[in-house]
Protein backbone atom coordinates (compact mmCIF):
# COMPACT_ATOMS: atom_id res chain seq x y z
CA UNK A 1 0.00 0.00 0.00
CA UNK A 2 1.38 3.42 -0.91
CA UNK A 3 2.42 5.71 1.92
CA UNK A 4 0.02 8.44 0.87
CA UNK A 5 -3.71 7.96 0.85
CA UNK A 6 -4.18 10.85 -1.53
CA UNK A 7 -1.72 12.50 -3.83
CA UNK A 8 -2.81 15.45 -5.93
CA UNK A 9 -0.29 16.45 -8.58
CA UNK A 10 -0.49 19.62 -10.67
CA UNK A 11 -4.28 19.62 -10.66
CA UNK A 12 -5.85 22.15 -13.01
CA UNK A 13 -9.61 22.66 -13.02
CA UNK A 14 -10.85 25.41 -15.30
CA UNK A 15 -14.30 26.77 -15.98
CA UNK A 16 -15.08 27.74 -19.54
CA UNK A 17 -17.55 30.59 -19.28
CA UNK A 18 -18.83 33.19 -21.68
CA UNK A 19 -16.65 35.83 -20.10
CA UNK A 20 -13.52 33.71 -20.47
CA UNK A 21 -11.65 30.82 -18.91
CA UNK A 22 -11.73 30.93 -15.11
CA UNK A 23 -8.75 29.10 -13.69
CA UNK A 24 -10.42 28.08 -10.45
CA UNK A 25 -7.72 25.57 -9.54
CA UNK A 26 -4.39 26.15 -11.20
CA UNK A 27 -1.53 23.77 -10.62
CA UNK A 28 -2.34 22.49 -7.15
CA UNK A 29 -0.32 19.68 -5.55
CA UNK A 30 -0.58 18.18 -2.08
CA UNK A 31 -0.69 14.85 -0.28
CA UNK A 32 -2.65 13.31 2.55
CA UNK A 33 -1.58 10.41 4.74
CA UNK A 34 -4.10 7.82 5.95
CA UNK A 35 -5.99 9.14 8.96
CA UNK A 36 -4.60 12.67 8.61
CA UNK A 37 -6.76 15.73 9.33
CA UNK A 38 -5.99 18.33 6.68
CA UNK A 39 -7.39 21.85 6.72
CA UNK A 40 -7.87 23.75 3.48
CA UNK A 41 -8.23 27.47 4.13
CA UNK A 42 -9.06 30.27 1.76
CA UNK A 43 -11.54 32.99 0.93
CA UNK A 44 -14.45 32.64 -1.45
CA UNK A 45 -13.16 32.00 -4.95
CA UNK A 46 -9.79 30.72 -3.81
CA UNK A 47 -10.46 27.30 -5.33
CA UNK A 48 -10.79 25.24 -2.17
CA UNK A 49 -14.23 23.81 -2.93
CA UNK A 50 -13.35 23.15 -6.57
CA UNK A 51 -10.28 21.23 -5.41
CA UNK A 52 -12.53 19.04 -3.26
CA UNK A 53 -15.10 18.56 -6.02
CA UNK A 54 -12.30 17.59 -8.40
CA UNK A 55 -11.14 14.86 -6.01
CA UNK A 56 -14.62 13.37 -5.84
CA UNK A 57 -15.13 14.14 -9.56
CA UNK A 58 -18.27 16.20 -9.09
CA UNK A 59 -17.21 19.37 -10.90
CA UNK A 60 -20.20 20.52 -12.96
CA UNK A 61 -19.26 19.89 -16.56
CA UNK A 62 -19.79 21.97 -18.61
CA UNK A 63 -18.64 24.64 -17.77
CA UNK A 64 -16.03 23.03 -15.52
CA UNK A 65 -13.32 20.66 -16.66
CA UNK A 66 -10.28 19.07 -15.09
CA UNK A 67 -7.74 20.00 -17.73
CA UNK A 68 -4.56 18.66 -16.22
CA UNK A 69 -2.77 16.85 -13.45
CA UNK A 70 -3.48 13.63 -11.61
CA UNK A 71 -5.24 12.60 -8.42
CA UNK A 72 -3.86 9.39 -6.95
CA UNK A 73 -6.08 7.72 -4.37
CA UNK A 74 -4.42 4.63 -2.91
CA UNK A 75 -2.02 4.88 -5.83
CA UNK A 76 -4.74 4.81 -8.52
CA UNK A 77 -5.44 7.80 -10.70
CA UNK A 78 -9.03 8.88 -10.05
CA UNK A 79 -9.07 10.92 -13.24
CA UNK A 80 -8.74 7.75 -15.32
CA UNK A 81 -11.74 6.04 -13.77
CA UNK A 82 -15.02 5.79 -15.66
CA UNK A 83 -18.36 6.85 -14.24
CA UNK A 84 -19.30 3.43 -12.86
CA UNK A 85 -16.01 3.10 -11.06
CA UNK A 86 -16.42 6.60 -9.63
CA UNK A 87 -19.93 5.83 -8.38
CA UNK A 88 -18.46 2.79 -6.65
CA UNK A 89 -15.76 4.88 -5.02
CA UNK A 90 -17.97 7.74 -3.89
CA UNK A 91 -19.70 7.00 -0.64
CA UNK A 92 -17.67 3.88 0.04
CA UNK A 93 -14.02 5.02 0.00
CA UNK A 94 -14.39 8.78 -0.35
CA UNK A 95 -17.40 10.65 0.93
CA UNK A 96 -18.30 14.25 1.26
CA UNK A 97 -20.29 16.47 3.61
CA UNK A 98 -21.52 19.74 2.14
CA UNK A 99 -22.11 23.16 3.63
CA UNK A 100 -25.85 23.30 3.38
CA UNK A 101 -27.60 20.66 5.46
CA UNK A 102 -30.99 22.02 4.36
CA UNK A 103 -30.76 20.97 0.73
CA UNK A 104 -28.45 17.96 0.92
CA UNK A 105 -31.17 15.54 2.04
CA UNK A 106 -34.11 14.34 -0.01
CA UNK A 107 -37.30 15.70 1.59
CA UNK A 108 -39.55 12.81 0.53
CA UNK A 109 -37.62 9.94 2.12
CA UNK A 110 -37.09 9.17 5.79
CA UNK A 111 -33.70 9.79 7.34
CA UNK A 112 -33.23 6.08 8.01
CA UNK A 113 -34.07 5.19 4.42
CA UNK A 114 -31.49 7.62 3.10
CA UNK A 115 -28.73 6.19 5.26
CA UNK A 116 -29.74 2.59 4.52
CA UNK A 117 -29.77 3.36 0.80
CA UNK A 118 -26.09 4.30 0.90
CA UNK A 119 -25.24 1.17 2.85
CA UNK A 120 -27.14 -1.09 0.42
CA UNK A 121 -25.55 0.58 -2.58
CA UNK A 122 -22.05 -0.29 -1.42
CA UNK A 123 -22.46 -3.54 0.49
CA UNK A 124 -23.56 -6.32 -1.79
CA UNK A 125 -25.88 -8.88 -0.28
CA UNK A 126 -26.89 -6.90 2.78
CA UNK A 127 -30.56 -7.33 3.68
CA UNK A 128 -32.98 -4.44 4.08
CA UNK A 129 -33.21 -5.16 7.79
CA UNK A 130 -29.46 -5.14 8.24
CA UNK A 131 -29.15 -1.89 6.29
CA UNK A 132 -31.83 -0.31 8.48
CA UNK A 133 -30.03 -1.58 11.59
CA UNK A 134 -26.85 0.02 10.32
CA UNK A 135 -28.75 3.29 9.76
CA UNK A 136 -30.01 3.31 13.34
CA UNK A 137 -26.53 2.46 14.57
CA UNK A 138 -25.06 5.39 12.61
CA UNK A 139 -27.69 7.80 13.93
CA UNK A 140 -26.85 6.67 17.41
CA UNK A 141 -23.17 7.20 16.67
CA UNK A 142 -23.73 10.81 15.58
CA UNK A 143 -25.69 11.25 18.81
CA UNK A 144 -29.20 11.70 17.52
CA UNK A 145 -31.26 11.02 20.63
CA UNK A 146 -33.76 8.17 20.37
CA UNK A 147 -32.21 6.98 17.08
CA UNK A 148 -34.57 4.03 16.56
CA UNK A 149 -37.60 6.30 16.47
CA UNK A 150 -35.95 9.27 14.74
CA UNK A 151 -34.79 7.06 11.84
CA UNK A 152 -38.42 7.12 10.72
CA UNK A 153 -38.51 10.93 10.67
CA UNK A 154 -38.31 13.10 7.57
CA UNK A 155 -35.63 15.76 7.04
CA UNK A 156 -37.98 18.68 7.75
CA UNK A 157 -38.51 17.36 11.27
CA UNK A 158 -34.81 17.87 12.01
CA UNK A 159 -32.99 21.10 12.87
CA UNK A 160 -29.96 22.28 10.90
CA UNK A 161 -27.47 20.80 13.32
CA UNK A 162 -29.28 17.46 13.37
CA UNK A 163 -29.40 17.34 9.57
CA UNK A 164 -25.68 17.92 9.42
CA UNK A 165 -25.29 14.99 11.83
CA UNK A 166 -27.36 12.89 9.45
CA UNK A 167 -25.10 13.93 6.56
CA UNK A 168 -22.10 12.84 8.60
CA UNK A 169 -23.85 9.55 9.40
CA UNK A 170 -24.44 8.94 5.68
CA UNK A 171 -20.87 9.91 4.85
CA UNK A 172 -19.38 7.56 7.44
CA UNK A 173 -21.86 4.67 7.03
CA UNK A 174 -19.48 2.68 4.79
CA UNK A 175 -16.29 3.47 6.72
CA UNK A 176 -14.65 5.61 4.02
CA UNK A 177 -10.91 6.19 4.00
CA UNK A 178 -11.37 9.86 3.19
CA UNK A 179 -14.05 12.25 4.38
CA UNK A 180 -14.18 15.61 2.64
CA UNK A 181 -16.12 18.23 4.59
CA UNK A 182 -16.77 21.45 2.69
CA UNK A 183 -17.59 24.23 5.18
CA UNK A 184 -19.61 21.73 7.25
CA UNK A 185 -20.38 24.19 10.03
CA UNK A 186 -20.63 27.52 8.22
CA UNK A 187 -24.43 27.44 8.10
CA UNK A 188 -24.68 26.52 11.78
CA UNK A 189 -24.60 28.47 15.02
CA UNK A 190 -21.41 28.42 17.07
CA UNK A 191 -22.68 26.18 19.84
CA UNK A 192 -23.89 23.71 17.19
CA UNK A 193 -20.63 24.14 15.27
CA UNK A 194 -18.73 23.06 18.37
CA UNK A 195 -20.91 19.92 18.62
CA UNK A 196 -20.39 18.98 14.97
CA UNK A 197 -16.62 19.59 14.92
CA UNK A 198 -16.15 17.59 18.09
CA UNK A 199 -18.20 14.77 16.58
CA UNK A 200 -16.32 14.71 13.26
CA UNK A 201 -12.95 14.82 14.96
CA UNK A 202 -13.90 11.99 17.30
CA UNK A 203 -15.41 9.76 14.64
CA UNK A 204 -12.57 10.30 12.16
CA UNK A 205 -10.13 9.24 14.85
CA UNK A 206 -12.22 6.25 15.87
CA UNK A 207 -12.52 4.90 12.32
CA UNK A 208 -9.09 6.03 11.12
CA UNK A 209 -10.73 8.15 8.43
CA UNK A 210 -8.66 10.90 6.86
CA UNK A 211 -10.44 14.24 7.08
CA UNK A 212 -10.15 17.06 4.59
CA UNK A 213 -11.79 20.07 6.20
CA UNK A 214 -12.46 23.01 3.94
CA UNK A 215 -13.16 26.26 5.73
CA UNK A 216 -12.63 30.00 5.71
CA UNK A 217 -12.40 30.04 9.50
CA UNK A 218 -8.84 29.81 10.76
CA UNK A 219 -10.14 29.15 14.26
CA UNK A 220 -11.88 25.97 13.14
CA UNK A 221 -8.66 24.73 11.57
CA UNK A 222 -6.60 25.49 14.67
CA UNK A 223 -8.69 23.19 16.82
CA UNK A 224 -9.33 20.39 14.34
CA UNK A 225 -6.50 19.86 11.85
CA UNK A 226 -2.92 18.60 11.91
CA UNK A 227 -1.79 20.11 8.65
CA UNK A 228 -3.05 23.18 6.80
CA UNK A 229 -2.92 24.38 3.23
CA UNK A 230 -3.77 27.98 2.44
CA UNK A 231 -5.21 28.73 -0.99
CA UNK A 232 -5.36 32.01 -2.84
CA UNK A 233 -6.65 32.65 -6.35
CA UNK A 234 -6.52 28.99 -7.35
CA UNK A 235 -3.05 28.32 -5.98
CA UNK A 236 -1.67 26.85 -2.79
CA UNK A 237 0.35 29.67 -1.27
CA UNK A 238 1.37 27.92 1.92
CA UNK A 239 1.36 24.41 3.34
CA UNK A 240 2.50 23.58 6.85
CA UNK A 241 1.77 21.70 10.06
CA UNK A 242 -0.93 23.55 11.99
CA UNK A 243 1.38 24.98 14.66
CA UNK A 244 3.73 26.48 12.11
CA UNK A 245 0.91 28.12 10.16
CA UNK A 246 -0.09 30.02 13.27
CA UNK A 247 3.30 30.55 14.91
CA UNK A 248 5.67 31.12 12.02
CA UNK A 249 3.51 31.84 8.96
CA UNK A 250 5.75 32.27 5.92
CA UNK A 251 3.54 33.65 3.16
CA UNK A 252 2.48 37.31 3.37
CA UNK A 253 -1.11 36.28 2.62
CA UNK A 254 -1.23 33.88 5.57
CA UNK A 255 0.26 36.59 7.77
CA UNK A 256 -2.29 39.08 6.43
CA UNK A 257 -5.17 36.73 7.14
CA UNK A 258 -4.03 36.09 10.70
CA UNK A 259 -3.69 39.81 11.39
CA UNK A 260 -7.05 40.69 9.92
CA UNK A 261 -9.21 38.49 12.15
CA UNK A 262 -10.27 39.67 15.59
CA UNK A 263 -9.45 37.14 18.27
CA UNK A 264 -11.55 36.43 21.29
CA UNK A 265 -8.45 36.51 23.48
CA UNK A 266 -6.97 39.74 22.09
CA UNK A 267 -6.20 42.77 24.22
CA UNK A 268 -8.64 45.66 24.31
CA UNK A 269 -7.91 48.38 21.78
CA UNK A 270 -6.04 46.18 19.32
CA UNK A 271 -6.57 47.45 15.82
CA UNK A 272 -7.11 45.03 12.97
CA UNK A 273 -4.70 45.12 10.06
CA UNK A 274 -6.78 44.53 6.96
CA UNK A 275 -5.41 43.25 3.68
CA UNK A 276 -5.84 46.11 1.21
CA UNK A 277 -7.63 45.60 -2.09
CA UNK A 278 -9.45 42.52 -3.30
CA UNK A 279 -8.66 39.07 -4.70
CA UNK A 280 -7.91 39.08 -8.45
CA UNK A 281 -10.39 38.30 -11.19
CA UNK A 282 -9.57 34.73 -12.18
CA UNK A 283 -10.91 35.06 -15.70
CA UNK A 284 -8.00 37.37 -16.53
CA UNK A 285 -4.46 36.22 -17.10
CA UNK A 286 -2.43 36.62 -13.91
CA UNK A 287 1.23 37.35 -14.47
CA UNK A 288 3.56 36.81 -11.57
CA UNK A 289 2.43 36.12 -8.02
CA UNK A 290 -1.37 36.42 -7.71
CA UNK A 291 -0.98 38.11 -4.33
CA UNK A 292 1.49 40.74 -5.57
CA UNK A 293 -1.07 43.58 -5.97
CA UNK A 294 -2.05 43.30 -2.27
CA UNK A 295 1.30 42.27 -0.83
CA UNK A 296 3.14 44.64 1.53
CA UNK A 297 6.49 43.07 0.65
CA UNK A 298 6.13 43.07 -3.12
CA UNK A 299 9.30 43.33 -5.23
CA UNK A 300 9.64 43.82 -8.99
CA UNK A 301 10.32 40.10 -9.46
CA UNK A 302 6.94 39.18 -7.92
CA UNK A 303 5.11 40.96 -10.74
CA UNK A 304 6.93 39.02 -13.44
CA UNK A 305 7.37 35.42 -12.27
CA UNK A 306 5.10 33.10 -10.37
CA UNK A 307 6.77 31.69 -7.26
CA UNK A 308 6.73 27.90 -6.81
CA UNK A 309 5.64 26.17 -3.61
CA UNK A 310 9.01 25.48 -1.95
CA UNK A 311 10.35 24.56 1.50
CA UNK A 312 11.19 27.60 3.59
CA UNK A 313 13.76 25.74 5.65
CA UNK A 314 11.50 24.87 8.58
CA UNK A 315 10.77 21.18 8.16
CA UNK A 316 7.53 20.49 6.35
CA UNK A 317 6.59 24.13 5.87
CA UNK A 318 6.22 25.19 2.23
CA UNK A 319 5.42 28.61 0.79
CA UNK A 320 4.92 29.98 -2.71
CA UNK A 321 6.80 33.22 -2.18
CA UNK A 322 10.15 34.62 -3.29
CA UNK A 323 10.61 36.39 0.01
CA UNK A 324 9.01 34.22 2.70
CA UNK A 325 9.19 35.21 6.38
Amino acid sequence: MPENLLEVNNLKTYFFTRSGVVKAVDDVSFTMRPGEALGVVGESGSGKSVTALSIIRLVASPPGKIVGGEILFNGENILEKNNDEMTELRGSKISMVFQDPMTSLNPVFTIGYQIAETVKRHRKGISNDQAWQRAVEMLDLVRIPDARRRAKSYPHEFSGGMRQRVMIAIALACNPQLLIADEPTTALDVTIQAQILELMKGLAKEFGTALMLITHDLGVVAGTCEHVIVMYAGHIVESAPVRQIFQTPAHPYTIGLLQSIPRLDEKRGTRLTPIPGQPPDLSREIIGCPYAPRCPRVQPRCRQERPELKPVGRGEQLAACFYPS
Binding site: T191, Q193, A194, L197, D217, G219, A222, G223, F246
Partner: peptide
Amino acid sequence: LSAIPVPDPEVEARRKRIIL
Protein backbone atom coordinates in the same frame (compact mmCIF):
# COMPACT_ATOMS: atom_id res chain seq x y z
CA LEU B 1 -17.62 31.76 24.45
CA SER B 2 -16.10 28.34 24.85
CA ALA B 3 -17.58 27.24 21.52
CA ILE B 4 -15.84 29.94 19.52
CA PRO B 5 -12.68 28.63 17.93
CA VAL B 6 -9.54 30.68 18.55
CA PRO B 7 -7.05 30.79 15.68
CA ASP B 8 -4.19 29.43 17.74
CA PRO B 9 -3.54 25.69 18.06
CA GLU B 10 -1.77 26.11 21.44
CA VAL B 11 -4.76 27.91 22.93
CA GLU B 12 -7.16 25.44 21.31
CA ALA B 13 -5.33 22.46 22.79
CA ARG B 14 -5.56 23.94 26.31
CA ARG B 15 -9.15 25.12 26.15
CA LYS B 16 -11.98 23.30 27.76
CA ARG B 17 -15.08 23.36 25.65
CA ILE B 18 -18.58 23.33 27.05
CA ILE B 19 -20.59 21.40 24.51
CA LEU B 20 -24.26 22.27 24.83
